[in-house]
Design a protein around this nucleic acid. Structure first.
Lengths: 336, 336
DNA sequence: TTGTATGCGTTATCAG
DNA sequence: CTGATAACGCATACAA
């Protein structure tokens, strides 16, 4: 058993309350007794029991960070950023992984409801479910959403403007003179992917280009899917001159297929990928990509949550951040 | 305020203890009252306050996972694996990041000492410091180390046999007929890197090859360092025919330098890298690498910790796992 | 089967 | 400045 307040009180011949005051630097205790108490505490390596403390003052200094897939590089970076900010503010984070399972999400929600954490940040691509929605209705549940789209958004959230990101990428390709731009998007059920498609379509319309549905590939997620979609394309009549690929692994597969086919990037096919990881700079040629404002996503979300916890947020806030277009070789027209 | 046991007791006209028994599925409560209580609890969305519960039964179902750098891909994968195992056992994990700062490590240790967590897993490359050492002396502190070397190891730990890994890699290159094998290792202060060098030397000796200190590059960590070390090599008399590079980014830099110099892998220089990430399979040519047993590292460490928590471990246990050599094109001699 | 009383370790309120 | 004492929400030994 570790040492408690009571033990120290006995050793110092004072009341527990005095010890508590001394240890917490509160007024109302003479310098001499304070020193005596502090000395005893240090000598015995006293650590206040945080559970008891939390129970008494209703503060745990912990928040939950709930991701849907811990594999996701981007999400991990956001977690890291949140951890950094949280640490500054004296908060610990509990890491949760729902593995895309709504039941898990629901169970993690009880961390909030059981007062283990003071707030929760949900990161991810899933539609906001009923459990989360319901929980958010209570003003006691401090919840911030990151990159999580809801059909109607009552939540305080930090969002990436996927649509505008892809819009910028598409416009860039158009400006480079490419006319037939294909897009490889992920799961049709993903609101995020839907947003990306919107941006693509908007850019075409904005430039008076005709939308060709044959150039839109949905549900291509993963290296293999990226590879295969290129093969499919080759059998079609309309060959595109540029690609936008909305997911990293898909992009890799696509690049492999293009190279295997004996074609060159950007000479035969221009290409813009998604996510600015080391991969995109190493691949041959260096890839133009859309880069998410990861750091800001993390810092804003924690700042919001802290405000919620401290009741400094009168009503839900939404912060929208735009991805940055990083132009490297893969999207530059060689012979303009 | 959320609803408490007491509230439910009042609504049901029974004592708190009865409610507690009913909710915890304990014997000694009639079916009828139990149903009544359960119904009221559900209706009011009751969630037991875990702080109070933990305080009463001295169990938090939480463990701390302490990494030294959250950037580290390998470490994150281990965390993910631990999370998976922990979840099965009903444990939550608190994620901590010391940023290589011993002070931080010390402060996270207090999570243990203040009974917030039932145990802690330390992952990382740093030497075990005095604070950790001291904490480990108390049998109340359940501590497991992962890939963390100590000069004398009293800890229950799970270790990668770095030395043997590099030994295997070196032997493989020798068997392929390479005679002048250079090694690019990381920080001289890292015990892990020191282990790797040991394996290299041992393999040379084992094959009666002379150790050439000019072929040992220490403190080469990062892309730039990898690149530069190749440039340095080019100015030397003795040009190696093969490389072992012990860190991923360093390997990338090295590959870039080799290619920029107009040389080919493995024709001019064979190469074995470290860490089996997607990068190593994408790079041209696909890289032979040493792959760490990440999943096992995670599952063993949690299993150990659980045993410690349940007092099922009479004395410190050490599990040593060996990295796997994955042979791809980069280490195959073309003209044997 | 149920209720009462007490403890877990801390903070806070109120006297003294 | 200091000390009792209640409260936080739950679990449990003991009585009824």
């Amino acid at each position: 058993m570790s040492i408690t307040l009571k033990d120290i009180a006995q050793k110092a011949n004072v009341a527990e309350s005095t010890v508590s005051r001394a240890l917490n630097d509160k007024a109302g205790v003479s310098q001499s007794t304070k020193i005596k108490i502090l000395k005893i505490a240090k000598k015995n390596n006293y650590r206040p029991n945080q559970l008891a403390r939390g129970l008494a003052i209703k503060k745990t200094n912990m928040i939950a960070v709930i991701t849907d897939e811990l594999d996701n590089q981007g999400q991990i970076k956001i977690v890291k950023e949140i951890e950094k900010e949280a640490e500054k503010a004296g908060y610990q984070i509990i890491l949760c992984n729902t593995k895309q399972n709504p039941e898990k999400e629901k169970s993690y929600l009880s961390l909030l409801e059981s007062n283990q954490v003071e707030g929760a940040i949900f990161i991810g691509d899933q539609l906001v479910g009923s459990a989360l929605l319901k929980a958010s209705l209570s003003s006691e549940n401090n919840i911030v959403l990151v990159n999580r789209l809801a059909e109607e958004n009552f939540f305080t959230s930090v969002l990436t403007d996927y649509s505008h990101g892809i819009f910028k990428a598409t416009k860039h390709l158009i400006e480079q003179g490419f006319k037939n731009i294909a897009i490889l998007a992920g799961s049709e059920n993903s609101l995020i992917e839907a947003e990306k498609l919107k941006g693509y379509k908007k850019a075409l319309k904005n430039s008076d280009l005709k939308l060709n549905h044959d150039l839109i590939f949905k549900n291509t997620a993963g290296r293999k899917a990226g590879y295969n979609s290129f093969l499919k394309l080759c059998k079609m009549n309309l060959i595109p001159d540029a690609f936008i690929s909305t997911q990293e692994l898909t992009t890799i597969g696509l690049v492999e297929a293009i190279k295997t086919g004996g074609y060159f990037i950007p000479d035969d096919f221009a290409l813009i990928g998604y996510a600015d990881t080391i991969l995109s700079s190493i691949i041959e040629p260096p890839l133009s990509v859309l880069s998410e404002p990861i750091a800001k996503l993390g810092s804003f979300s924690f700042a919001f949550l802290l405000n919620l916890i401290n009741n400094n947020l009168a009503e839900p806030q939404i912060k929208v951040l735009s991805p940055k277009l990083i132009v490297r070789e893969s999207s530059i027209a060689k012979y303009n």
